[in-house]
Design a binder for these strands. Sequence first.
RNA 1: CCAGGGGUGGCGGAGUGGCCAAUCGCAAUAGACUGUAAAUCUAUCGGGCUUGCCCUACGGGGGUUCGAAUCCCUCCCCCUGGA
Length: 408
Amino acid sequence: MAKPISFNIEKRVSDRLGRAGVINTPNGSIQTPAFVTVGTKATVKALTPEQVSELGAQVVLANTYHLYLEPGDDVLVEGGGLHKYMNWSGPTMTDSGGFQAFSLGAAFDKGVGKLIKSKDVEDERDGRKEISTDIKKLPLAKVTEDGVEFRSHIDGSKHFFTPEKSIEIQHNIGADMIFAFDECTSPTASYEYQKEAMDRTHRWAGRCLEYHKKSKNSEKQGLFGIVQGGRYEDLRKESARTIASMDFDGFGIGGSFNKEDMESAVRWVNEMLPEDKPRHLLGIGEPSDLFGGVLSGADLFDCVAPTRMARNGTLHTLDGRINITNARFARDHSSIDDSCTCYTCRNYTRSYVSHLFRAGEMLGATLASIHNLHFIVKLVADMRQAILEKDLPAFRESFEGKYYGGRC
RNA sequence: CCAGGGGUGGCGGAGUGGCCAAUCGCAAUAGACUGUAAAUCUAUCGGGCUUGCCCUACGGGGGUUCGAAUCCCUCCCCCUGGA
């Protein structure tokens, strides 16, 4: 039977793993590299699907854990599946809920992200710095061999996800590309724990694959296996080798990294993954990280950063990030970014968007989200173009020179 | 004019002899955010520097006290009743 997902490479970056290609899905094709917009609860926050499409996005990624809790995957089945339910006609993905083992578990209330500076890891390990921890607040997720026990962040009720359960829910949701259930570990976790979690993730990957293959859904939904291994080279390579040996339709690269060497960590992995299947670098969306990911052979990226930062008033410009609520923008009647062609920049000024934020008006979040998503989606699309024109490293240098202006 | 209530930092509003440069909220100023517990969170928010202290401050002025935003006198202003 035909595979639901196919991938064709059009051009490669010389001496690097980067490539430009096309992913074909039952709901359309994706020109890669591409940035995937995050629509956790079957909505890209603050935007209509028409706006998401108009700003250039090709794919939307929703979340299994969130949709299972609210409104319930049975409701999505009734509603005709994710595409129909949220009125998005393009390709879709769902994350497996594995990330919530981290965000509701190890990371709970500690102010830890999935990227960390290696100095902070050492400082925490050696007791020079404490990643804030309030032991009175119990985590909402607990990992066991069989799966992850969640306490709903909405009402506190208990739920248990096994690999099979995650895939079952993702079948019900019905996205074109779905992810194996994995455990995303904290960047502060020890080597021993990273290895233990990685081995468990591998076992879960096998269970996901087996469950998926037995279902007819495997004819219309592609399953991506997820590579883990934290920030350790040997674990990353071992994980890549293990996951690569399984018959997935594509691959996710998950987990935590040292900020400084994420690019090489992705390379370690992609050197071992089969070339002819798409690779998705999970949860990455800073410009420099996107360049690093693309050059190291990743095809897809998703990240909440553009939309979350937008709602919090931080906007991308070619000259770096700005906080639109800063006093200096209150009477700045120029556009957010002169060279930007998004709906927001074509029609509104910094002063106006600043005013909307100060006034607490919802439109501020919408206009800012349109701008940031357009900026990042276009940035990755420009990387694709640069690959096709054979000058990606040069594009990176000129972009980062302006964007980071010596700050990075 | 009489009776009562009240005037506190940009605003609202605590405090009613020392722990008060003054709780808290808002506003303001900056920062953070990387598979979304996030339209969230953090910090600062009278002035000066040697960061411990000094100066200026709870309507104005005067007084009591070792010490006053807090008690007394007086003036000014606001609110509510009454003539």
